[in-house]
């Protein structure tokens, strides 16, 4: 009985490996003799990460780098193993998208021991810039949180008596969730008429957000706006509100619920264009140029900032058309 069991496990492992690798188009036939850059991705099947990896690949090709991507499938152990693999090949640079702020710090040590410089992307990591890694580049979620508060406030007349907000937050404990929550609250403190009436888990998932929204509506809590930590949550909120015959849009005087979220997905942009989704504060995956600029600056010996902020923008009805193609 032992044998078929181990054979099966082997088959499963091979299948698993095959499917991991299958997600990434390899570009080994690229004749460019440029530098080798490896990217260890969080590798979630999330639109954002997919778009970010694609953008990196395009930018690498444009600049004549050889880029290889490894998806860690949101598992810390796999990321560590990936990085061990990567540094053994002595690439010129490692682009690291940490799965976890603390957990992925081990990857930094591995790269440091092998003298491979690291550019941290996507989110924060424990460690010192200039020592453990070259620099970190990602969106500023505190800023995004502040911006979302600002945009909700701006949707209401200045003399609005009260702005009651429902918050559908992302995965609890995640760095981006915490950043957006604290930025939002910091800004909200400036608006005495604005308050959060419910804050529930949306988990970055449409179904979870939809469930939460349905139950909040049923509980009879009165609210004027919804803030979502990602487009998928906003979609869930809109579906629930639509089912409850509540209108969403940009005009509170018509009884429309104001929905502001973080994102920039195709579905999100479509909803903005349709007027159902008030505004999106983008969390753009399109900053590969900033990543490669940093690599080139470092290679030429320039001193870099310890944190490079990705410039995010606000997308609404007026500018949605020009961003339509960049939806991910």
């Amino acid at each position: 009985m032992k044998k078929p069991q181990s054979v099966l496990l082997l088959v499963a492992l091979v299948v698993a490996m095959f499917t991991n690798a299958g997600c990434v188009p390899e570009k080994s036939d690229d004749a460019a003799t440029g530098k080798v850059v490896e990217y260890s991705s969080v590798g979630d099947s999330n639109e954002w990460f997919v778009a970010f990896a694609r953008e990196l690949e395009t930018e690498a090709e444009k600049r004549g780098y050889k880029l290889r991507v490894r998806h860690a499938q949101a598992k810390i152990e796999k990321q560590i193993a990936d990085v061990e693999d990567i540094v053994s090949g002595q690439p010129d640079y490692l682009i690291l998208g940490p799965i976890d702020t603390k957990g992925s710090a081990r990857a930094l040590n591995i790269a440091k021991d092998a003298d491979v410089p690291v550019i941290v992307v996507n989110r924060d990591i424990v460690g010192k810039a200039g020592e453990d890694f070259v620099t970190k580049i990602y969106s500023d979620f505190e800023w995004i949180g502040e911006k979302m508060a600002e945009e909700i406030h701006g949707a209401f007349p200045a003399d609005a008596k009260q702005i009651r907000v429902v918050e559908l937050h992302g995965t609890a404990g995640g760095g981006n969730t915490i950043g957006m929550q604290s930025g939002f609250r910091k800004k909200m403190a400036e608006y005495p008429n604005m308050k959060i009436v419910a804050s529930q888990l949306g988990d970055f998932r449409t179904d979870v957000a939809m469930t939460a929204m349905e139950n909040i509506i049923t509980s009879g809590v009165e609210f004027d706006a919804v803030v979502c930590h990602f487009d998928t949550e906003a979609m869930g909120a809109m579906l629930a509100l639509k089912a409850a015959k509540r209108k969403t849009g940009s005009d509170p005087s018509k009884g429309e619920i104001i929905i502001v979220g973080n994102g920039g997905t195709k579905d999100g942009l479509k909803a903005v264009k349709a007027g159902e989704y008030h505004k999106i504060v983008s969390v753009t995956p399109y900053y590969a140029n900033q990543v490669f600029d940093a690599i080139e600056a470092h290679a030429s010996g320039k001193k870099l900032e310890s944190y490079i902020r990705v410039d995010d923008i606000v997308i609404d009805k007026n500018n949605v058309d020009e961003h339509m193609d960049s939806g991910f």
């Binding site: 979630d44 099947s45 999330n46 998932r205 449409t206 179904d207 939809m210 998928t232 979609m235 869930g236 579906l239 579905d267």
Partner: peptide, 13 residues
């Protein structure tokens, strides 16, 4: 579930 959420996320569903 796919019908309810209006999308299929193979990694999350």
């Amino acid at each position: 579930e796919a019908a309810r959420g209006g999308r299929v996320d193979a990694g999350r569903l």
